[in-house]
Design a protein around this nucleic acid. Sequence first.
RNA 1: GGCGCGGUCGCCAAGUGGUAAGGCAUAGGUCUGCAAAACCUUUAUCGGCGGUUCGAUUCCGCCCCGCGCCUCCA
Length: 479
Amino acid sequence: MTDIHLHNTLSNRLESLQPLHKGEVRIYSCGPTVYDYAHIGNFRTFVFQDVLRRFLLSRGLRVLQVMNLTDVDDRIIQNAAAAGVSIREYTEKYVQAFFEDMNALHLQPPEETVRATDHIEDMVALISRLQEKDLTYPSEGSIYYRIAKFPDYGKLSKIDLGGMKAGARVDNDRYEKDDARDFALWKAPKPGEHFWETSIGPGRPGWHIECAAMAMKYLGETLDIHTGGIDLAFPHHENEIAESEPATGKPFVKIWLHAEHLIVDGEKMSKSLGNFFTLRDLFAKGSKPSSIRYLLLSVPYRRQLNFTADSLTQAANSVERLRNFASRLKTEQFAAGSHPQIAKRAAKALADFDAGLADDLNTAFSLAAIFDLVRDINTAMDRGEFLQQDAPIVVSALEKFDAILAVLADDDDEKLRDLGFGPQQSRWTPEKIEQLIAERNAAKKRRDFKRSDEIRQELLNSGIIVEDTRDGSVRWKYK
RNA sequence: GGCGCGGUCGCCAAGUGGUAAGGCAUAGGUCUGCAAAACCUUUAUCGGCGGUUCGAUUCCGCCCCGCGCCUCCA
């Protein structure tokens, strides 16, 4: 198997993944800020992270992935105050919603999902270390990071802040800083605001310190991979580097991976443009979880993804093709025996699929490997060159593909129902369906096509598609 | 202005110094009582202009266009 190559934002090149701990890859993934439902752009990044971890697992590597939930920031504090509830109460709803959304998209839970507010002491400890190194200064009860003391600042985002002057821009924090580039590690309490009483004084953490502290706590002072959306490269990740490397004297992260943004109809997604979607918005409009997952993973993560209604339909149809194939494999009767070519063909598809992912998660290439196989196997079936013993081989290959894609399971209705969308009444049972199909078969046998078509239509009206197959058997599926 | 991603068939999207994967859609055909599924066939010279080269979509330069980031937005 080829080495896994990933594009490191730090070096701006493809690098071979060499885990620090043999056989185990340690990943920190920036999760959502739980002040609202996560949106479809967030999930582009989360699906990318899921594909990464699933691919590593498929290689037999252990994965130790930590994802944070940012449950304290300005918006949360404001919204919680406006709602008259505690921060914890306010965020709990969105934390739960996030887990539900993850489940709907078949996102595997990371080994650890950690909350910022559960790690205040770890952040305080890290800030103390930075204080000892004289990298900080106090101002009006807050603690700031003095960027001038860290010469490597900017190495990740390649940003040049030299031209910026103190006071040149409006300070969003409205605190006094020595230099506009400096950022808050610890924020002084404001009247009426929730704060923590700590050894470095009362207040609440700044934005970036949570990730630096939690990443190192769970994964060690140097991690293999850190992931997030491209917008996080600056300032968030840049600041995490500034907070960790001078404190430990070690590189914080070996490989930084950043997912490009999702845009909608060619424009940045924003509430003011009215093109801002949560998963639930899409479910309410009839989209299936599998269509969304497929679309999000089908475009390689370093490419901007233009999300449109049309592309969602295309994704749904692509998934349908794969599912039809899986269904054919399992239901069609084949003659006894085996064709040695089939096993070879499946092995090649698996190798190509893997090679695509190993090349910086080139999912588009990997999908092509699958569709090539689908066409070749369908052709072999049509020609009678596909036999009984071949089926399990191809079924197994599909399972391996789907261990990463996770779109083959016909569970969209179930996932939607879990969230209160889609058809609420349960579908017809297989027994009832089989019974009607038997009736239809009898009608067909006596060439009563009027009756047989009636039954087919009746089933269709209830969301069941009936297909006659070449070998005379009848296959059905939920619409 | 700086940094970054991109401009390949109607749409989505790989890829290579020697004339371009795959998916969706379209059209015709095969199969079918009909349909569906499946299969076959069909649709591109790769934003523009120069340069390097025997040869460039693929390398270099310039230009045009789209999108993003440049302090709390994945």
